Computed example of a mutant assay.
Amino acid sequence: MSSGTVQLRAVTRRFSLGATSVTALDRVSLTFPRATFTAVMGPSGSGKSTLLQCAAGLDRSTSGSVTLGGTELTDLSETELTLLRRERIGFVFQAFNLLPSLTAEQNVALPLRLAGRRPSKARVREVLEQVGLGDRARHRPTELSGGQQQRVALARALITRPEVLFGDEPTGALDSRTSREVLDLLRAMVDREGRTVVMVTHDPVAASYADRAVFLVDGRVNGELTGAGAEDIAARMTRLETAPC
């Protein structure tokens, strides 16, 4: 399997709530090929975030398998999983999670420092330039707009040259113009750099930037749309949200 390809086979994730058990994912099988952009959508409680967490090695599935390239995540120890996430996976969330006392360039360099590696100033500046913030390297988060902070978070995710970038509502806290800027950056990472992007979103406009939108309902895959526009994606979501239980 090529580097950057994520594959889930019959992945189930159950959570115990007292005496009851809740199935968040129910035998989900999906492939996210290298150099593609996939949006994961579905009604509230459909299992979107759980899918992302299992695919990214942030959570362990109850059964089934998850592979990144040729690596089976379900066989790894916690230490091995931590190393894999640090070296091969990038994350961008709705909350920017920047340290307010650090400058943009210091926030970007943080993953390398935490890994015990000395960050190259040239590499830090390179990824800041990549997200259009080369002139904001010494600014702290309070001196940046929300969109600029999210771009710093994106640069931080890219500093290790990850094979896969996972986003959980990465534009959820942004206005429409700033959202488009961030989505354009994600799209360019796929088209120009061959990265794999998997993004959970509730926004049909955001999903229209992806190559395909995969829909979940009650922890199961409920079809997908390829190359669809925002209107078609919104119509599909409306049908899913209004369908009888």
Rank of each mutant, 00 (worst) to 15 (best):
G4M: 02
G4L: 03
T5Q: 10
R9C: 11
R13K: 15
R14S: 13
S16D: 14
S16T: 11
T20Y: 09
T20P: 06
V22Q: 11
A24K: 04
A24G: 04
S29G: 10
P33E: 02
R34M: 14
A35F: 05
A39Q: 07
A56N: 01
S61A: 14
S63D: 15
S65Q: 14
V66G: 04
L68A: 04
L76F: 12
L76C: 02
R85Q: 04
R86Y: 05
R88T: 00
R88P: 00
I89Y: 00
G90I: 03
F91P: 03
P100Q: 13
P100S: 14
L102W: 08
T103S: 15
V108E: 03
A109L: 07
L110C: 07
R113F: 07
R113K: 13
G116I: 08
G116C: 09
R117N: 05
R123L: 12
V124T: 03
R125W: 07
R125K: 15
Q130R: 15
G132I: 04
L144A: 07
S145M: 09
Q149E: 10
Q149S: 01
Q149C: 12
L154W: 07
G167A: 13
P170I: 10
R177H: 14
T178M: 10
T178Y: 06
S179N: 02
V182M: 12
D184M: 07
R192V: 12
V198I: 15
M199W: 01
D203Q: 03
D203M: 00
P204M: 03
A206W: 04
A206V: 02
A207V: 01
R212M: 06
R212D: 09
L216T: 00
G223E: 02
E224L: 11
M237L: 15
M237F: 11
T238W: 15
T238F: 14
L240W: 00
